[in-house]
Nucleic acid binder design. Sequence first.
DNA 1: CAACTGCATCGACGTCTGTCAATGCCTTGC
DNA 2: GCAAGGCATTGACAGACGTCGATGCAGTTG
Lengths: 117, 117
Amino acid sequence: MLVTEQVPTAAESRGPVCCPTGLTAPLDRETAEDLARLLKAVADPARLQLLALLKASAAGEACVCDLTGPLGLSQPTVSHHLKVLTEAGLLTREKRGTWAWFSIVPGRLDEIAAVLR
Amino acid sequence: MLVTEQVPTAAESRGPVCCPTGLTAPLDRETAEDLARLLKAVADPARLQLLALLKASAAGEACVCDLTGPLGLSQPTVSHHLKVLTEAGLLTREKRGTWAWFSIVPGRLDEIAAVLR
DNA sequence: CAACTGCATCGACGTCTGTCAATGCCTTGC
DNA sequence: GCAAGGCATTGACAGACGTCGATGCAGTTG
């Protein structure tokens, strides 16, 4: 367990002073931004639907033409979301012939979920 | 404007079949938006830092004046982020005298993390 | 009561983001 | 080769978001 500095409550501290402030952020801004970028990739309804569709598909993969319909979004928009998910390491793209097949990277979602612990 | 045009899947369309799957969205748009709203509350560097600070604090709670310093943000901005986290059910606010004390709602983060499974 | 302090709200501003139509690239089939 | 289809990229635009200064409000202190 991580023992940080004792933070005297305002009730304990003398006078009207609230913050004796030895309090230092255990999570620096840069790291926080990296984590936020990762979470932002998932924090979108369309992308959540895409992940659900891929997870529910029999082979664990699907091409763009199968995903535009259920989402009710245009093809460029779906392509955009798939790119975001891929760049976040959540999906892999494999081009077979004319079609681009996307599949979920196993364990990656759990990695992101683990951040929130 | 919402484009509701039906896009025939590769299975239905002419030519070589791409995906025989009768793939239907298991996650409707409305539910997806609810989940996204929840995740968006956490997908921000400042709010992640706030959660980290609160988790690291001895009593598991802190007042606003203890949080503005480490974050390097103005007081109204920190207040705004705390409001977002509170409305997402991640924090509770308790006013004691002049100060507003925020503390983490136990288990709530795990609930959100569980969504990604 | 008056002055002060901690916090929330408001209004404004620049930036990021989701979306679409149009276009271009690449592969397949004739 | 040429036409057609699948997908990515571009450009544009509206809305959402993060941030701050100014202001307002509720307790506390003198």
